[in-house]
Amino acid sequence: MEVTINHLFKSFGEHTVLNDFNACIPAGQVTLLTAPSGKGKTTLLRILMGLEKADSGEISGLEGLKQSVVFQEDRLCENLSAFSNIKLASPQLKNEMIEEALAKVGLAEYAHSPISKFSGGMKRRVAILRALLADYDILFLDEPFKGLDAETKALVMSDVKQRSQGKTVILVTHDPTEAEILGAVYTIEL
């Protein structure tokens, strides 16, 4: 079922971020959400995820959908290992499955090391894997590949494409090639 956004308004004080915004996000497809910086992409994602309330407007089609997300920030528990961070979000996952997924993105030997010892790129890979391995119907990707080098980015992007096949994905990125590789069919401009 598609997600429909009707007449959405959102302001922060005097600053209006979303002004009568309307859109339709098709189910089972990758949709690219694009706009210049500061125009409300993240705010829209936050409203869709239920982390922010719109001032007015209607959103339908999200009811009962399980969500997953890669935030702009990694948002990992620094005291836990990469393995435990993934397990925290998806306790139903089998241990071998998590270890296998970590190995696929080059983190096999660091699976049980604390996140606090990870580099920025390693943390990013864990944050992406956490989102991909979770049980979800709709996936929000807010500039997910930021901070990854070209080689790792290619590796991770192919993993994202494979694991999100047939799921509703909303991708926020400034890089059109990322949208192309992930197979974004629809584009919403704010």
């Binding site: 239920g50 997300v69 528990c77 979000a89 979770a134």
Partner: peptide, 16 residues
């Protein structure tokens, strides 16, 4: 707060 938002989106149980 960011971790708590993450927990909300991933439906992490209150005990966890």
């Amino acid at each position: 707060k960011q971790l708590l938002e993450m927990a909300q989106v991933f439906r992490i149980s209150p005990m966890r």
